[in-house]
Amino acid sequence: MAMTTISPKFQVVIPKEVRDKLHLVPSQRLHVVEKGGVITLVPEVPLKSLRGVLKGMATTGLREKKDRM
């Protein structure tokens, strides 16, 4: 497990092994999510990279919001 330290300016360095694994680049934006005392950094993904991710998804059996009760 990689570890880091908060600097006096409240900056955090993401360890190299994590940056390489997630293909993070300088100036890339990260969303900071706090839930239950846990901080999670989520890389912003360009919409263009999501093209085709739902290809082959079943479209039958989907319900309308009013039918979900």
Rank of each mutant, 00 (worst) to 15 (best):
41 L>V: 01
49 S>L: 10
48 K>T: 14
22 L>P: 08
48 K>A: 12
17 E>A: 14
56 G>L: 03
67 D>Q: 14
41 L>P: 00
41 L>H: 01
13 V>E: 01
57 M>G: 13
25 V>R: 08
14 I>C: 02
20 D>E: 08
36 G>P: 02
60 T>K: 13
19 R>E: 07
45 V>C: 11
5 T>Q: 11
29 R>E: 13
44 E>N: 13
27 S>R: 11
29 R>N: 06
23 H>E: 08
18 V>D: 06
34 E>F: 01
53 V>D: 14
63 R>P: 04
41 L>F: 00
50 L>T: 09
37 G>C: 02
4 T>K: 03
57 M>F: 10
54 L>I: 01
64 E>R: 15
1 M>P: 04
20 D>P: 06
69 M>Y: 11
25 V>M: 08
14 I>L: 05
45 V>W: 10
13 V>W: 00
58 A>G: 14
59 T>Q: 14
45 V>N: 06
38 V>R: 02
61 G>P: 11
51 R>T: 14
19 R>N: 05
66 K>I: 15
14 I>A: 04
51 R>I: 14
24 L>H: 06
56 G>H: 13
20 D>T: 14
59 T>N: 09
1 M>A: 06
69 M>E: 13
59 T>L: 07
13 V>L: 05
11 Q>E: 10
2 A>E: 14
51 R>D: 08
17 E>I: 14
67 D>C: 06
10 F>K: 14
45 V>F: 10
34 E>K: 01
46 P>R: 06
4 T>Q: 04
9 K>A: 08
68 R>Y: 07
21 K>M: 06
30 L>K: 01
32 V>E: 04
36 G>Y: 00
28 Q>E: 09
2 A>W: 09
30 L>Q: 03
1 M>N: 13
67 D>N: 13
46 P>I: 11
36 G>V: 00
14 I>Y: 00
67 D>R: 12
28 Q>M: 13
69 M>Q: 10
29 R>L: 07
69 M>H: 15
68 R>N: 12
48 K>C: 07
32 V>R: 04
68 R>C: 15
40 T>R: 11
35 K>N: 04
9 K>I: 00
56 G>Q: 11
12 V>Y: 02
30 L>R: 02
42 V>R: 09
64 E>M: 10
10 F>W: 05
58 A>P: 15
13 V>P: 00
47 L>N: 12
64 E>D: 15
49 S>P: 09
65 K>W: 06
34 E>P: 02
58 A>Y: 09
47 L>Q: 07
26 P>I: 03
48 K>M: 15
51 R>A: 15
19 R>S: 11
55 K>P: 10
19 R>L: 09
34 E>D: 02
19 R>A: 11
68 R>W: 07
45 V>A: 12
50 L>G: 13
55 K>M: 13
10 F>C: 03
59 T>I: 05
59 T>K: 14
30 L>E: 02
26 P>M: 09
49 S>W: 00
57 M>I: 03
6 I>E: 02
